[in-house]
């Protein structure tokens, strides 16, 4: 028997009410993400990307349709059951970090692992490894507010990965990063993905999206394209050769 997909949605719909006027944000999305897949969700602003990923994390209730996580129905869960599910299975990186302001960076990163039942020692080791990979070791004892935006975003990524979630959801995780910091984030994402981490990520950043196995494009709340990113076409062992030609 095949393992259950990590995520399945069936005709998922979200309609916001704007002063009594229904505004459809997601209009019938069928999505299936297998274990270990890295899926990038792209599309213009207002196409429903963020709404979709928030629904997958239980942060925004669906209007109709179904959400299945690891083979279990999730859209019918109440808020507290969703909270429990997130703690155990889901890491979420928000566009605007959402770090706990009155805890140190180290505690912010360790907390989800501790809540998920890791021992203090496991949580600490995991935190040290993640902060190190993101070049943040020196920030461990700082408060989030003392960090620059790009640093806070990387802490948020470390936190989301701390409890080894079965699903990592991320909403524009490199939106606030300069290119060097983006490179660190890309490297870590590549690593955890190679280790089998399932990732669904809303991104505008083509560098990030190009690392994904699959790109889902949304337009007006519907999937208009869903397919693999083709492997590089040439020069497997080449040098930077001809960037200029590549662009040609």
């Amino acid at each position: 028997m095949r393992a259950d997909p990590v995520v399945t949605t069936v005709n998922l719909v979200k309609i916001y009410q704007n002063g009594g006027v229904p505004v459809p944000a997601v209009r019938g999305v069928d999505l299936r993400v297998e274990r270990g897949e890295f899926v990038a969700i792209m599309g213009p602003s207002g196409s429903g990307k963020s709404t979709l990923i928030h629904m997958l994390g239980g942060l925004d209730p669906r209007t109709s349709g179904e959400i299945w996580l690891d083979g279990k129905r999730a859209d019918t869960l109440g808020e507290s059951a969703w909270a429990l599910l997130r703690r155990k299975k889901i890491g979420f990186v928000f566009q605007f970090f959402n770090l706990v302001a009155n805890m140190t960076v180290a505690d912010n990163v360790e907390l989800p692992a501790l809540l998920a039942g890791a021992s203090p020692r496991e949580a600490r080791e995991r935190r040290e490894r993640l902060l190190d990979a993101l070049g943040l070791t020196g920030c461990a004892d700082a408060a989030p507010a003392q960090l620059a935006g790009g640093e806070q975003q990387r802490v948020a990524l470390a936190r989301a990965l701390a409890n080894r979630p079965s699903l990592l959801l991320a909403d524009e995780p490199t939106g606030n990063l300069d290119s060097r910091n983006t490179r660190d984030v890309l490297k870590l994402l590549g690593e955890v993905h190679r280790d089998g981490q399932t990732i669904i990520m809303v991104t505008h950043d083509a560098r990030v999206a190009s690392l994904a196995d699959r790109v889902v494009s949304l337009l007006d709340g519907q999937i208009v394209d869903d397919g693999a990113v083709a492997a590089p076409r040439r020069r497997p062992r080449g040098t930077a050769g001809d960037v200029v030609e590549l662009r040609g």
């Binding site: 083509a206 190009s210 790109v215 040098t239 960037v243 590549l246 662009r247």
Partner: peptide
């Protein structure tokens, strides 16, 4: 879109294989 993303993947690979000291090359890739 898929084609552009596959070129981008190519460029990511090129950047990874380029030595960090090779600043001119890295800037051109960027």
């Amino acid at each position: 879109r898929r084609h552009y993303l596959s070129i981008m993947r190519d460029l990511n690979g090129l950047a990874e294989r380029t030595a960090p000291e090779d600043r001119v090359a890295l800037l051109l890739i960027e």
